[in-house]
Amino acid sequence: MVKFDVRNLSVRFGAFNALKGITIRVNANEILAIIGPSNSGKTTFLRTLNRMNELERAAIMSGTVELDGTPINAISAEALRKRVGMVFALPLPLPLSIFDNAAYGIRMHGGKSKQAVREAVEKALKQAYIWDEVKDRLGESAFKLSGGQQQRLCIARTLAVEPEVILFDEPCSGLDPISTAAIEEAMLKLKSVYTIVLVTNNVKQAARVGDRTAFFLMGDMVEIDKTDKIFTAPSDKRTGDYIMGKFG
């Protein structure tokens, strides 16, 4: 089943063409990994899917992006972002307690009793493998956690809203190998329920968790295929060169 159907997507920031006509389909319950050097448009692509690019006033978009067959511009930004969650490159807790961080999204959408919020927070913290570490200190500031814990809290915060799709924007770029492994493990478990798009600078991470992998270069999508195929027999020489570490 196709979750996101992106056709001929171009995004421009002023005179800079960040994406040049990308066509891509994201299937439900897969992990789509996107690799490529910096400035290749990976993050811009990700931020198109939940309409975060609109926050930049200079951004101009063309082409169509459909979520479950509905153009995303026909959905309000708030409703879209409730269905399409995002985890940022750096751990970005809000200046609130651990509990309030995890509960933030649910509370903003409203309509849930205190008990229901509490249950949803616990469930999300468990899904992000951080419950055991924080269950006794939920009232403490989220900034007291380590970087890896903060990032898992951010994942829990996104999960608590119960989106359909989660966009990961280089979620492990600032983390140690153990925290990275914990987050990758979480992702692999989550894909049974969620659709995941993972942008990563770490080629090996794409190989470990991606069902399919797309290679972006200078605003173009060079190729997309099953992860095994991309890493063993890429059809484009540039993909092979990038994976081998010849550039990037």
């Binding site: 975060m52 708030e78 972002r81 940022f88 903003m108 959408h109 996104t158």
Partner: peptide
């Protein structure tokens, strides 16, 4: 970044 996070969670 606080604003972005809040908006990304679907807050208005």
């Amino acid at each position: 970044s606080f604003r972005e996070v809040s908006l990304s969670l679907g807050a208005s």
